[in-house]
Amino acid sequence: MNNKLLKAIQTIEKRFGVEEHIFRDEYSLIVSPGDVVEICRLLRDGFGFDMLSSLTAVDYWPEGDPRFHVIYQLYSIENNINLRLRAPVSDDNPAIPTIEGIYPNANWHEREIWDMFGIKAEGHSDLRRILTPYDWEGHPLRKDYPLGYEEVQFTFNADEIDAKKPYVKE
């Protein structure tokens, strides 16, 4: 294990009391959402994690508690190390503080998790839907949101489905 990474993890563990998860040499720290901004600032300024690779979320509905995990994938160009932060967020009015001030490219990623999961980024400068239409209802990547599957047309049910299909009249 990289010394720099070890040091960063130890420092964070000491200051914030986080849980560690290792799988295939990938290190994840499970942090509380309130600490995310502080930890990110510490990692960027103190340990050279200068790039936010990816920011996303996972939904563990129905049995997961807390329901969501917000995932921050950080990368340090100088030391060539990856570190992942996972912030559990509960179902009740889910929200995380924005890290836009630390990594400017978190802006769109946070808009995306608002659009897709309904997790609000508090203090975000421009929290609008980004991928779905402006008046879309619901948050598609939540597990309780249906896929919107349409029945496939075969020979035996072609006419039946054809009748239901909303073809446009000129």
Partner: peptide, 20 residues
């Protein structure tokens, strides 16, 4: 023509629902 492999919420299942 019909939605293809993307049978989901985001894709119109065939553009004939929108234009002739």
């Amino acid at each position: 023509s019909c939605g293809g492999v993307f049978n989901n919420y985001a894709i119109v299942q065939g553009v004939d629902e929108v234009i002739p």
